[in-house]
């Protein structure tokens, strides 16, 4: 490990430790925002793991998330919660593999389109199954888990995602993804199994998103498909990740915190304007910060250093 990596690790551990102290503030509002931020951090970081190097915009976050939530909601009466978490993670990875097998061998557009309607399609299927298998639409998730617990769980998952991201960055898979992101033809002619690499990475991303859904299920106590498969979630995650920047592992984090707070403020004061804000955010990102805030800062910094010499 180089000294720079050690330094980054130390800083990361300190920040992580500080973040873990938040529930001791005892302020319910802060904890609630903390849960939301932690949720978006995990989702957008894992989104960027896949979409950063491949430039494939995945709009499937809500589908994975909803899958995890529904699995917990359906099974909580019969199966221990921990087992449900495992099932959710596996289900998320399997669904990602299926979506990947259908689309990632082809060009990126097919992938975007497929993921665009995926959450809505699964919501339809789940509702239909519930109606026809005699279940009621709404399900209760009653556990002893408090917001504090959920917060710590999400924080631990965030740590796990950062570790995985760091490990992938140093692995052959990470190197393969950088090559694929540059030129897919060259990648194939270098002997890289491009489809398999992309599918593997998408599975990691899908697994994490499903797990987040499963972890958050106890927060709602009452769950029906319309809540679990929230259509806007996918877009919010894309905006936050791109706003921060996807080139660095911690890039999305920079986008998540201000944007979550902005969304909270908008939802509290102008509840019907969330979608307008999302639209404007998309446009601002494309035209003003195409490489994210982090990318923008790094560019300016590089220019500054060049100018200084």
């Amino acid at each position: 490990m180089t000294s720079r990596e050690t330094r980054t690790l130390v800083i990361a551990v300190i920040l992580f430790g500080l973040a873990a102290l938040l529930p001791f503030s005892g302020n319910g509002y802060y904890i609630s925002i903390g849960v939301t931020i932690a949720m978006y951090v995990v989702l957008s970081t894992s989104w960027a793991l896949f979409s950063g190097p491949t430039h494939y915009i995945s709009l499937a976050t809500a589908a994975f998330y909803g899958l995890g939530t529904m699995i917990v909601a359906t099974g909580i009466e019969m199966v221990p919660y921990v087992v449900l978490l495992l099932i959710s993670a596996v289900a998320g990875a399997v669904m990602a593999a299926l979506v990947g097998l259908a689309t990632l061998r082809l060009s990126g557009v097919y992938f975007v389109i497929f993921t665009l309607g995926l959450a809505e399609m699964i919501r339809q299927l789940v509702s239909w199954l519930q109606n026809n298998l005699g279940g009621s639409r709404g399900l209760y998730v009653l556990t002893d888990l408090t917001e504090e617990h959920i917060y710590w769980e999400l924080l631990a998952l965030a740590g796990f995602v950062f570790l995985i991201g760091w490990w992938i960055g140093r692995s052959r898979l990470g190197f393969a993804m950088r090559i694929i992101g540059n030129d897919e033809t060259v990648a194939a002619h270098c002997g890289i199994n491009t489809a398999r690499s992309k599918i593997l990475l998408f599975m990691v991303s899908g697994m994490v998103a499903a797990l987040v859904g499963a972890l958050l299920a106890p927060r709602w106590t009452y769950i029906e498909p319309n809540i679990a498969f929230s259509p806007l979630l996918s877009f919010e995650v894309v905006i936050m990740a791109l706003l921060g920047g996807t080139k660095r592992l911690w890039g999305p984090l920079v986008g998540v915190i201000p944007f979550t707070i902005l969304l909270e403020v908008i939802e509290a004061n102008y509840p019907s304007q969330t979608i307008l804000v999302l639209g404007i955010a998309f446009l601002l990102i494309v035209y003003l910060v195409p490489h994210g805030v982090v990318g923008r800062l790094e560019q300016s910094f590089a220019k500054f250093r060049k100018g200084g010499n």
């Binding site: 915009i57 877009f235 894309v238 791109l242 979608i275 307008l276 999302l278 639209g279 404007i280 955010a281 998309f282 446009l283 990102i285 494309v286 035209y287």
Partner: peptide, 11 residues
């Protein structure tokens, strides 16, 4: 991304 932005803004 840009057309998403326009679509959302329109809605």
């Amino acid at each position: 991304l840009a057309t998403f932005g326009m679509g959302f803004a329109f809605v």
